[in-house]
Design a protein around this nucleic acid. Structure first.
Lengths: 193, 193
DNA sequence: ACGCAAACGGAATCTCGATTCCGTATAGTA
DNA sequence: TACTATACGGAATCGAGATTCCGTTTGCGT
């Protein structure tokens, strides 16, 4: 029972370049318009044919997952940094603001958290996001800085809500800075005391 | 230039019955699974053929609009009642809880507020929802019960966020009552003082 | 009971985006 | 330079859901 010896040879130079271009095009287009953008359009923007997109990602879901991993890696970094803040609440608050910014700048991210549960779960766990969230919350509770009833599972829910509401038709009624106020309400409400 | 004399004759009895059945089927299915349910399925559940659905609603969007009107009428009623509460803040808080419940029970509603801007705007305005929201907020501000920076356009944004986050994959992580905590945070954060 | 406009059912069609296929091009190697 | 495994482009195919069409049925006024 030796580990399956998957033949990992380096990608040919052009292939590596194209893969990167596809990812960047997908990030840009999906970030702006959501996961609904078509594979053809992504290919065009990347300057390759659709066939090439499918050579690198077996299907759309795989492409979305690759992007999700990227985002969760970033979120994990934000969480890790927050854990290093000497002031638990300040760390938490900063984390929430930065994470919200990531969501607001990338429309597809919230959509993944809404509809692609598997991709999200996998990406989040890969970077230890759930545990980091839990540690951050627990640390705040220990310091008496956050309400006792806050559940670490609330964080992704709230981020998904803020992110989606922002790019929604309803969100446009609240104006450009709507999401900032929204987030302030939530933060103020989570704070202890 | 007489007003166009649209021939409004009463629907034949069977037609009226079928129209109601289609609406009810759509309400039930879309409420549970979102606007993505197919027209064929709605027809089946209503016990009619697809052709009949299209006789009553020229296209899917029209059917969605009809449902949206229904919901906004309900929301308008909740707002009106809230305005009659002698305690401005209590009225506001109650309105938020009831409205959130309507959203949580009807998955399609938040989706309309997210993606079908036109249908939403039309339905909301038809029942005076924007003005009611504004009056409610202003009344709270006058009583010093709500933060000054709260904008009446924040309400639909927040409801859309809570509603969508609730039925999202991320929302499931927060458990059954996740949305209630979410709403509490927001309310607490909007309150003055 | 009769006649016909109003309704019906549901197969056929249309649309559009995802995915596959295969002939051609080329990086890397001897 | 010649060779071949890789990679490429994009037309063709699939599939799912929305919408149309038309032959049949039915409510209801006479």
């Amino acid at each position: 029972m030796s580990p399956t010896p998957v033949d990992i040879r380096p990608l040919r130079a052009d292939a590596a370049r194209n893969r990167a271009r596809v990812l960047e095009a997908a990030r840009e287009l999906m970030g702006a318009r959501g996961v609904e953008v078509g594979m053809e359009e992504i290919a065009r923007q990347a300057g390759v044919g659709v066939g090439t997109v499918y050579r690198h990602f077996p299907n759309k879901e795989a492409l979305i997952s690759a992007l999700a991993e990227d985002r969760f890696a970033r979120i994990a970094a934000v969480l890790t940094e927050a854990l290093e803040d000497p002031d638990p609440w300040h760390g938490f608050e900063t984390m929430m603001r930065r994470t919200a910014e990531i969501h607001v700048a990338d429309r597809a991210l919230s959509e993944v958290m809404r509809n692609h549960g598997d991709a999200m779960q996998a990406a989040a766990e890969k970077y230890g996001v759930p545990e980091l969230n839990e540690r951050l919350i627990e640390r705040c509770k220990a310091a008496g800085a956050i309400r006792e009833e806050v559940h670490h599972g609330d964080i992704p829910m709230i981020m998904c809500g803020v992110g989606i509401a922002t790019c929604s038709a309803a969100g446009r009624l609240a104006g450009e800075d709507g999401w900032k106020r929204y987030l302030e309400y939530v933060l103020e409400g989570m704070r202890a005391g």
